[in-house]
Design a protein around this nucleic acid. Structure first.
Lengths: 196, 196
DNA sequence: CTATTGATTGAACGTTCAATCAATGTCACC
DNA sequence: GGTGACATTGATTGAACGTTCAATCAATAG
C-alpha cells in the first residue's frame, strides 16, 4: 500500500529526531541548540527537521508531550495505593525515579521554566502540571488529617521541586534518595525525628 | 581629582544602565533582551553600553556581583544572633525578604541557572553561593544537635530554593510568608506541628 | 523499464543580533 | 574662547540564526 520508508535512516525517524533534540537542548539550552546542531546530532540535514516538525518550538512541545504522558501514567499507578501514608511516600519516590531516569528532559524543563513569556504555548502546560501536583498533595494531606493541608502542600511541592532541581544541577554527587526519604519522613510522618 | 562625569545623563550612568539591564533581562530573559532593548530601556544609544561594559555577558555578571554583595551583607548581620534556633529563623526570613525585594534579579538568576554551560563565568559563582548556603545550614543544624545535619541541610536548602522559585513564578498569589514560617517550624522546631 | 512517490539533502534567503567606530557634543581648564 | 579629553551617538558590519525550496535519491507500482 503506502510506499513506506526504507532509507538508510533509523526505523522511526520522528523519535530519532526527538531524541537528538532532547540531547541538544539539554546540553546547550533551548536557544543555544541551533537547528543545525540538532540536525548534526541526528546525523541528518537541517531541512529534514521541517519535514517532521513545523518549527523549532514544535520540537520542544513534542518533548513535553512525551514526558507529560510518562508522569500521568505514574500518577495513575500510585493512585491505586490504599494507605495514604504509603501513597504519599510512593508518589515522592516515583517522582524521583522519573526525574532520575529522564534527567535530560528535566534539565530542559527547568531551564525553560522562567522563559514562559518567550515560549507561549508551554507556559500554560507547565502551570497546569504544577497545579495538578499541588492539588494532589492537598488531597493527600487532608486525608492524613493535617491541620493546614494547603500550606503544607505548598511547602511539600516546593521542597520536592527544589530537590529535583538541585539534583539536576549536580546529578553525580547529589544524595537524591537520602533527601527524598527524609522529606517523606517529614511530610508523611508528622514527627520530624526529634530523635535520641 | 577624579575627572567625574558632568553630562546630560543621570549621575551614575553605570548603575542606571545596570538597572535598565535588570528590567530588560527580567522581562525578556537573557537571550531575549537585546542590546537595543536594554539601551532603549535606559534611554541611551546602544553603543554607550560598550563604554561601560565589555559585552552583554558583563552586564549579567555585574548584576550578579551587585546581588551577591547584598546577600553576603545580610548573612553577616544574621550571624550575630546568639540563639541558633532564632538565627535559623531569621536567616530564612531575611532570605525571603531579599528575594521579595529583588524579585527581578531572582527571576533572572533562576532563569539563567540551567544554562551554566552557555554562561561559563557564572556557573562557578552560582555554585559557590550554593555551597555557602548549604555549609551555613550544616553548621546551624549541627549546633541545634540534629542527628543528620548534612542531609537535613540539603533538604532545607532545597525547600527554601524551591519555595523562592515558586514565589517568583507567581509573586502575586504565592503565600510566601506562610510557607516560610511553616518551613521554620519544620526545620528549627524538630516537632513538625502534630498540633491539637 | 518507466512513472510516481515521499524522504532527504544542502545551499540560499531574509532577518536579527552583538559589537564596532567615525562623528558629534559637552565639559574642565587655561 | 580655544583646546584636549572623554561621553555619547546611531549607522554600519559581519556572523549566525531559523526557515525555505529546488534538486536528488531510493523504493515501489504498474
Amino acid at each position: 500500500m503506502s510506499p513506506r520508508a526504507a532509507h538508510p535512516h533509523p526505523p522511526d525517524v520522528r523519535q530519532h529526531l526527538l531524541d537528538a533534540a532532547l540531547r541538544a537542548f539539554a546540553a546547550h539550552g533551548y536557544e543555544g541548540a541551533t537547528i543545525k546542531l540538532i540536525a548534526a546530532e541526528a546525523k541528518v540535514a537541517p531541512g529534514l527537521l521541517y519535514h517532521y516538525f513545523a518549527n523549532k518550538e514544535a520540537l520542544l512541545t513534542a518533548l513535553f508531550e512525551r514526558s507529560g504522558a510518562l508522569v500521568a501514567e505514574a500518577f495513575i499507578t500510585v493512585a491505586g495505593i490504599a494507605d495514604p501514608r504509603e501513597r504519599l511516600a510512593e508518589l515522592l519516590r516515583v517522582s524521583a525515579r522519573i526525574v532520575r531516569e529522564n534527567e535530560d528532559f528535566w534539565r530542559i524543563s527547568y531551564g525553560v521554566r522562567f522563559q514562559g513569556a518567550v515560549l507561549a504555548g508551554l507556559g500554560a502546560g507547565i502551570a497546569a502540571q504544577s497545579a495538578a501536583f499541588h492539588a494532589t498533595f492537598v488531597l493527600l494531606l487532608t486525608e492524613l488529617g493535617r491541620p493546614d493541608p494547603v500550606t503544607e502542600a505548598w511547602l511539600l511541592f516546593a521542597s520536592l521541586d527544589g530537590l529535583f532541581q538541585h539534583y539536576i544541577l549536580a546529578p553525580d554527587t547529589y544524595p537524591l534518595d537520602a533527601v527524598v526519604e527524609l522529606l517523606i519522613t517529614r511530610a508523611g510522618g508528622g514527627a520530624a525525628a526529634e530523635t535520641p
